[in-house]
């Protein structure tokens, strides 16, 4: 019995042995995943999941251009550059969609691939020996945060990227709380929002601006592609469990916390990147929600169907 407990203890403490880096990884993962999961709820309700995808790819040229100007990967100007191209892609999608006969799905595809290609081109032309490399763009390198300079806080050496992402997370959550009613209203009924004298377009671009900021902060940790997982998978899992937006936001946040922590265990046991571990953990939670979610759970549906067919089993029903 004691050996089992000892093994469990060893397993549980394994990611956090040695220095503080394990703690920083979990906090970094959580500070990135939390604002993503909350914004993802609104994206999901607005049926804009793939716009999140488009933005997460389009921030690349912005980051590269800003980096080429300031030559410092931790500079806040990178956020501005990325935010600018993130907004640019939403404008570009809207323009192609409204000015030509090309439909919205194709407009999204054209806009973000073009900007992403531009980013890749800039990377390969100008930054060959610098920190931005292709691998980092695709899957991110969360573990690199401990190589950045650190700030002394509460007697610990806190890495700078963690501080930046925490500030962005607090800002994003603050924005969601302040504009909660507006976001909720415009997500469900744009017409009603307009009748209250608030332009839904303004809300839309506000959301896109916050999203761009959050996405670019996550970019360094999880790369361009897995950001969508952080945006959509928690929100979708929560959506399968409830009909209420507040509950959905809460569940989505809990999902991001569990998957950031679980990711550490997957990371130390399978030697994969933390980002992909977060996605795998999140996906497992999604499958649980898909099967057992109180609203949409497959198991409840099967059960209901089974009992119904049993109680009404009077042979062929005549219509």
């Amino acid at each position: 019995m004691d050996t089992v407990l000892l093994q469990l203890d060893a397993f549980l403490s394994r990611p956090f042995q040695g220095d503080d880096s394990g703690l920083w990884y979990v906090l970094m993962a959580f500070s990135v995943a939390l604002p993503c999961s909350l914004l993802g709820c609104f994206l999901l309700l607005r049926r804009m999941a793939l716009v999140g995808d488009a933005i997460s790819h389009s921030v690349l040229p912005g980051i590269v251009i800003a980096y080429l100007i300031v030559k410092d990967l931790s500079s806040p100007w990178l956020l501005f550059g990325a935010g600018a191209t993130g907004m640019l892609v939403t404008v570009l999608i809207e323009m192609i969609h409204s000015k030509t006969r090309v439909k919205q799905d194709a407009a999204i595809g054209i806009s973000f691939t073009t900007l992403f290609a531009l980013g890749i081109l800039l990377v390969s032309l100008f930054t060959r020996n610098d920190h931005i490399d292709a691998d980092c763009i695709i899957s991110g390198e969360l573990t690199h945060i401990i190589y950045y300079e650190a700030l002394e806080l509460f007697g610990k050496e806190v890495p700078m990227p963690l501080i930046t992402s925490t500030i962005v997370a607090i800002g994003a959550i603050g924005a969601i709380i302040v504009f909660y009613r507006l976001l909720m209203l415009s997500s469900f009924d744009a017409g009603l929002t307009a009748s209250f004298g608030i332009n839904p377009k303004v809300v839309h671009y506000l959301l896109m601006a916050v999203l761009s900021l959050v996405v670019v902060t996550s970019f360094r940790a999880v790369g361009a592609i897995l950001v969508i997982a952080l945006l959509i998978i928690p929100a979708a899992s929560a959506y399968l469990c409830t009909h209420r937006l507040k509950t959905m936001l809460l569940l989505s946040g809990i999902h991001s916390a569990i998957s950031s922590l679980a990711a550490m265990y997957i990371y130390v046991n399978f030697e994969c990147s933390i980002a992909s571990a977060m996605v795998v953990a999140g996906l497992l939670l999604f499958i649980v929600a898909w099967l057992f979610g109180p609203v949409d759970g497959l198991v409840w549906k099967w059960k209901r169907r089974y009992f119904r067919s049993e109680s009404y089993d009077y042979g062929e029903v005549d219509h």
Partner: peptide, 16 residues
Amino acid sequence: AALGIVLSGFFGIGLF
């Protein structure tokens, strides 16, 4: 949402 989940989920599994 379904496309977003499958796109990023499968890709994450692939990287893993």
